[in-house]
Design a protein around this nucleic acid. Structure first.
Lengths: 264, 264
DNA sequence: ATGTCTTTGTGAACGCGTGCACAAAGATGG
DNA sequence: CCATCTTTGTGCACGCGTTCACAAAGACAT
């Protein structure tokens, strides 16, 4: 799921397909688990099963990285952990700022998976003056007035936006202006950023809606072709004004204001 | 990003491509915003811009739903909101259970985007007896012993897993056995489920790692082709045992135990 | 009623991603 | 040193998704 914008259609970074890049973290996690159990080598079949992918796909993915792996044996776990980590850029330290310390921001701040993967929470930033100085997950919250200074001083290039949607673009602009070039967006908005800036989006609401779609389909199928089985889009038309153009209706603020995962 | 398993390769539910389904919520959000501003109609160009996609793609997406839209004018906002909502199954009520009321689970419980989209938090479930009865976001937490009963009584078909990875599969199995057929998984694990059950995964750690990859690439490029510019995978080999096979190394628990977003 | 202008809906081409199936490579045993 | 067996690495084909470009459809003005 994906880059809200900044698509990079066929840019295929350094020859590694985007789809492969998205799977590398999966492999890395499976490999790390094996490493902890002191398993020396693993076959593509085993590793693929652990990562939940096809073994042919896994081999092809690894082939983009190079020919690590020994025929007749498999892959050296430790070696592969290092190679993937290096490829993903996890061998260096990535300072990260989290903007918007609501429920979600606080949860993110306390996430243990940061440090172990090369990520370090450099600062927590919130616009509420009452939050300033208050420690969250052991890190004192700083006021957003100091955003630019923090980004600059710590050399931060990755920012996490966990603010309400209303201010997300504005926060994004400030982050980008201050030098951030990668953004993980939890606010339910489409962020527009200049070229060269990557945006990835996480949206609970969208995930649930996709699940609901499939759930509905399952329920409908099970009940025996309820509607037209062939006609692509049979319009039931019932219980709905065919061409409303009614008054301003004004469905009252149906969310879209706070990031997925965040109390009002 | 995606189904941890249960791929549904070409099943293309009811003729609507999976990629299109994944974008419908985006359109719906943009349309809802327009609806609130009482905008009567919108062109594919405008809506596409608001949703952050290509206008041709948007038109093709809508064409799978049917021929709503008037040539020379555009789409009726209210009508389209209804059609997409119906297609996604949001016109009905979806009871949802959240299992694992840690930091993340609590944040999810308080998310306002549920109710407005047809989702309703039917129950919060946690294995910690101390949590039982304690209200979170106005909803009392129930003990996991009652999981099956809750699922059954409320007719829940969608479950959210926000537990540590160690128990995620086990929770998943219980949910599925109790009748849940759609799962949103926040735990960093590959869940295996029987056919007919959909799993979607949200993983902060993976998103950050993908960002780090692109960030590294940007930094490397900027510094002028640091390494071999053509050779696919030039192995620097420096600073790493070429073929470790060392002792059990034992990198101490590098996360992978708590869901993305959840304090240890 | 007719012409013009806007915007949809879609046919067709292209490119990426996936999976099959197999040859090459190397380990292992005799 | 040779035979056999395992497992990688990849050529190839296929299908989905994206995008272009345009004809058809309808609004609107005259």
């Amino acid at each position: 799921m994906a880059t809200g914008r900044t698509h990079r259609p066929a840019t295929r970074s350094r020859g590694i397909p985007e789809a492969t890049v998205a799977r590398l973290p999966l492999y890395l996690r499976a490999l790390t688990a094996l490493s902890e159990r002191s398993v020396p080598t693993v076959s593509s079949e085993e590793l693929a099963a652990a990562a939940g992918v096809n073994s042919a796909k896994l081999r092809k993915d690894f082939s983009y990285l190079g020919s690590y792996g020994t025929r007749g044996v498999g892959y050296d776990v430790e070696y592969l952990v290092y190679q993937i980590s290096r490829e993903l850029g996890l061998t260096q330290d990535w300072p990260v700022v989290i903007v918007g310390i609501g429920n979600l921001g606080a949860a993110l701040a306390g996430y243990g998976g940061f440090a172990s993967r090369g990520f370090r929470v450099a600062a927590l930033i919130d616009a509420d003056p009452a939050m300033a100085g208050k420690p969250v997950a052991g890190i004192p919250v700083q006021h957003s007035d100091d955003l630019e200074k923090i980004i600059h001083d710590d050399g931060v290039s990755i920012g996490v936006i966990a603010t309400p949607a209303g201010v997300a673009q504005q926060v994004c602009d400030r982050l980008v202006a201050a030098g951030v070039t990668s953004i993980l967006n939890f606010a339910p908005t489409v962020l527009s950023v200049p070229d060269g800036v990557d945006v990835r989006k996480v949206d609970l609401s969208i995930e649930l809606q996709i699940l609901a779609f499939h759930e509905q389909r399952k329920a409908g199928e099970e009940a025996g072709g309820e509607n037209a089985p062939e006609t692509g889009a049979e319009t039931p038309a019932a219980a709905m004004p065919p061409a409303p153009r009614s008054t301003g209706s004004g469905r009252k603020g149906p969310d879209g204001d706070v990031p997925a995962v965040m109390p009002a």
